[in-house]
Simulated assay, not measured.
Amino acid sequence: MPPRKAAVAAALADPSTLRRSSRNSKAVAAPEEAAAVIAAPPAKKAKVEKVKKGAKKGKPAKEEKEEEEEEEAGEEEKKEEEESKLPTPVGTDAEDVSATVAAEAAAVEEPTKEEPVANPNAVLQLGDALPDVAVLDHAGVPVNLHTLASTTPTIVIFAYPKASTPGCTRQACGFRDAYPEFTASAGVAVFGLSADTPAAQLKFKEKQNLPYSLLADTEYKLLGPLGAKKTAKGGITRSYWVVKDGKLVTMVIGVKPEVSVEKALAEVTAE
């Protein structure tokens, strides 16, 4: 009998041998099967990657890049189309936004500018015109020196603290005595000025026989701008002014009664 057939016959004759062979074959096979199970996932992943690579490999790299760029461009166009359907808010343009921001900043940082208002208490300077205001004279008649200056070449004004007081009487009488010299030239007018009432001025004028008008500036409409108002509450600093051709040419604040007469006369007769 050939050797192979003899081995098969022996195996069939002894069942235990057959069982041992079966167990051994399984024991040997078990590690191979386990290795196969463990290695299965990597094999599957490798296969997937191989498929992907195979798919890319089928096209040139240039074509693939062009397709990717086309897809990106398509997505951008789609996004722009969707945005264009939305209402455009005011100021979305770069220039509009800049203008809006600048306007808002200006509105916040810069307060609304108002037209300058003339300050009634501002002191006049040489070369300025007299305030365009009217005050009552000793007779209660309104007198506007600003208007008078347009027709009278030279105006002399002297201010005194209070009518009928000693120093003010000396000052007023000094201008009374020099009045002919002041008016020797045509176009010269002299005015006394204080915050007394028209009635007090009239009494003072009549008692001292003053030839010129006395102005009752009870609201300091002239005394304030001329700089003779002593304090915010009132009071007068003895002063004098000379106005020529509508402009203030001489302004002396704080002067003695007799000196005011002498210097004012010198200014008028200097020419």
Rank of each mutant, 00 (worst) to 15 (best):
N144M: 04
E109W: 02
G127D: 04
A122I: 06
A270R: 14
K62D: 14
P89G: 12
A232Y: 07
S150T: 12
E80V: 10
A55E: 14
E82T: 01
E271C: 06
A129E: 12
K50W: 12
L265F: 10
P225F: 11
L12N: 10
F191M: 08
A7G: 11
P87E: 08
D132Q: 03
K53G: 15
E67M: 11
T169D: 06
T151H: 07
E75M: 15
N121P: 00
V101W: 02
F175E: 04
P116N: 13
T250V: 12
L248M: 14
V268L: 04
V48A: 15
G167Q: 09
P198V: 07
L12D: 10
A27K: 15
T165D: 01
A216I: 04
D137G: 05
A118G: 10
P60M: 04
A270S: 13
K162P: 03
A232P: 01
I236A: 01
N144Q: 06
K207D: 10
S164E: 10
K162G: 03
V135L: 09
T269K: 05
A73F: 06
A102M: 15
S185G: 02
G91L: 05
D14L: 05
S185K: 04
T154N: 09
S22T: 07
V261C: 11
L202N: 15
T169H: 04
L18T: 13
V255N: 04
S239E: 11
E271A: 15
P42N: 11
M1Y: 05
G234P: 00
A36F: 07
F191W: 06
I38R: 12
P120N: 01
Q125T: 15
A39M: 12
E114Q: 02
F182Q: 06
Q208W: 08
C168E: 05
G227E: 03
C173E: 01
A159L: 00
D96N: 06
E81H: 13
G140C: 02
A186S: 10
M1L: 09
P153M: 03
G127W: 08
A36C: 02
S98T: 01
K53D: 15
G254E: 03
K113A: 15
L210S: 04
T237Y: 03
P89R: 14
C173N: 00
I253Q: 13
Y240N: 12
E67C: 03
V90L: 08
N209G: 07
E104Q: 08
F191I: 08
S25H: 00
A106V: 09
S22N: 05
